[in-house]
Design a protein around this nucleic acid. Sequence first.
DNA 1: GCTTCCCTTTGACGCAGATCAAGACGCGCC
DNA 2: GGCGCGTCTTGATCTGCGTCAAAGGGAAGC
Lengths: 250, 250
Amino acid sequence: MSAPAFPRSDVRILADDGDALHFCSTCAFSQACIAEGMHKHALLDLHVLVEHVGPLHAGEHIFREGDPFVAIAAVRAGTVKTYVIDPNGEEQVLGFHFPGEVIGLSAIDGDRFPCSAVALDTVMLCRFSFQKMALLATRVPGLQRQLFRLLSRDIGRATLLAGDWAADQRMAAFLLAMSRRLSERGFSAVRFQLTMARTDIANYLRLAPETVSRVLRRFQDDGLLVIERREVEIVDQPRLNALAGPVLRD
Amino acid sequence: MSAPAFPRSDVRILADDGDALHFCSTCAFSQACIAEGMHKHALLDLHVLVEHVGPLHAGEHIFREGDPFVAIAAVRAGTVKTYVIDPNGEEQVLGFHFPGEVIGLSAIDGDRFPCSAVALDTVMLCRFSFQKMALLATRVPGLQRQLFRLLSRDIGRATLLAGDWAADQRMAAFLLAMSRRLSERGFSAVRFQLTMARTDIANYLRLAPETVSRVLRRFQDDGLLVIERREVEIVDQPRLNALAGPVLRD
DNA sequence: GCTTCCCTTTGACGCAGATCAAGACGCGCC
DNA sequence: GGCGCGTCTTGATCTGCGTCAAAGGGAAGC
């Protein structure tokens, strides 16, 4: 399966004096601004520049724990992993971020990034100053609302894996959440690539890599999905839903 | 130990035409507004009214899962527990909230509360419309910053317990986090009441109540703390710190 | 005072999943 | 092709914590 083309027609706004403002359609922000009717003068005043970064290649870092917090990034293409290194030198995977999602929000409180972010494959980003974005938000109420929503959503999402779920419930929830998030952005909901290694999935789900392997094997034997290397096809979504239900709360 | 008196001198702003705006000093918001020099006209225009609610008694609900999201609340006194009921009818404790802390932020994204909040003892609250607060924030940049920080902080906090820590690490982290949060508000850091039941602690830490009991017993036997009923005294903070270190990340 | 109820503690046992160990597979390189 | 290496799988064993069961307080009510 080659990576499906993914919608990323950028929005480019030419202000009155020719200075250009770039928003890419995958950042949730542009939608908010357009909905507000684009107060061009306000935008120009603020010199908000959304910088397009990339391509980054697998293993390259977007930011590292302790870096001064200057900018927030939105993923345009590829997969980003966020993680911390605990005092024993163990990596702890905090999350995976797909196109259209924003990373670095937990850095707003405090002046340094509390985690590191690394590209898992070829990644394209939008990067922008949060300060300037916030200033813009004071003039564009819809943008402020969007920012509040993004932050609020992350609080809920972080709570998701905190429950004491069994290994197969966690795995089902992980796969379905990934399916949903990808399909929201125009990818297939039933067939997709696990862009991260088994060890990363295990670490994220707080399981041993061996357990991840065994659970996936069992899912396949039970006809819930077909998996070959890193390619997944969801076969029996209803039963996966039933497993993941209590975790995803629906 | 009787509950120590806790600073809650309210800030009351009388606007030009006599309409009154109330902020209590325990909400982080008033500080932001004062720092900005209080644009009284802006405030008055917006009719932001911070409503003082309470006292609520143990067992009374502040809001319930599914309630329409209209207002956010800040705890002025007492302890609030937030929780959800999962599809099997099991309660899941999401967190405990002490004076000065804000509850309900995860409801911003979506128009209904995603969890319930109940008083564990006698609780006093500030309640206010988030919409109006956000509108006010467009005029008072410091207030907007404060709101962003509050939200961002909660993202980080939710991540805290997501790790796969051992029972004693979780317990140590819970006790120290409680100690820190209470001392930030002027309470003793070494001697305080567990205002929640063992079952609530267990549920929150994703442990069995029996395990909570055993761990606390062992902590006492090892000279880390003294506990009698719900009153705790931290005796050996350095060793508790060492246990909790990886969890609290410091 | 006594009773009832709930919270808490303590002990015995079992299991899900971690850990340890060893292969299997895919892939890039020479 | 053959080699080396990292990722993944599979099997055997171990263990922390959950579960079950029962008994010991405190607090509230009569």
